[in-house]
């Protein structure tokens, strides 16, 4: 199992994105509301986050290519907890969104 966090910039989000990425069946939990660490909660959400458990390397490779080919997507290794994963790129969860 390859655990990844897929970040989707709000401006580039669309309802069928996970299906297009071939990831619709691999999500763990609800989407996360994410924002920069230095923003205030009232500034709102900048990204949506999807924790993915990807079973096969082929699926992971396809996702990497999808991320390269589409604007506003970032794929992060979930090698620690979600808070640390986000903090490493200046982001955090917006708890009030």
């Amino acid at each position: 199992m390859i655990d990844q966090l897929l970040l989707v910039r709000k401006f580039n989000s669309r309802s069928d994105l996970l299906e297009k990425a071939g990831m619709a069946g691999f999500t763990k939990g609800d989407p996360l509301n994410i924002m920069p660490d230095v923003w205030e909660d009232k500034d709102g959400v900048s990204h949506y986050g999807y924790i993915l458990g990807i079973p096969k390397l082929d699926d992971f490779n396809n996702l990497q290519q999808f991320v390269k080919d589409n604007e506003g997507l970032t794929l992060l290794d979930m090698d620690t907890n979600i808070t640390a994963t986000l903090a490493a790129v200046g982001l955090r969860i917006n708890e009030s969104a």
Binding site: R9, K10, F11, P36, D37, V38, W39, E40, D43, G44, S46, H47, G72, A88, V89, G90, L91
Partner: peptide, 22 residues
């Protein structure tokens, strides 16, 4: 060390990105 750039909220930079660059 890590340098994190963050776009000001509610600006086109925060819309089109990068919202953050690390």
């Amino acid at each position: 060390q890590a340098l994190v750039m963050t776009a000001l909220a509610n600006t086109p930079a925060a819309t089109y990105g990068p919202v953050t660059r690390t």
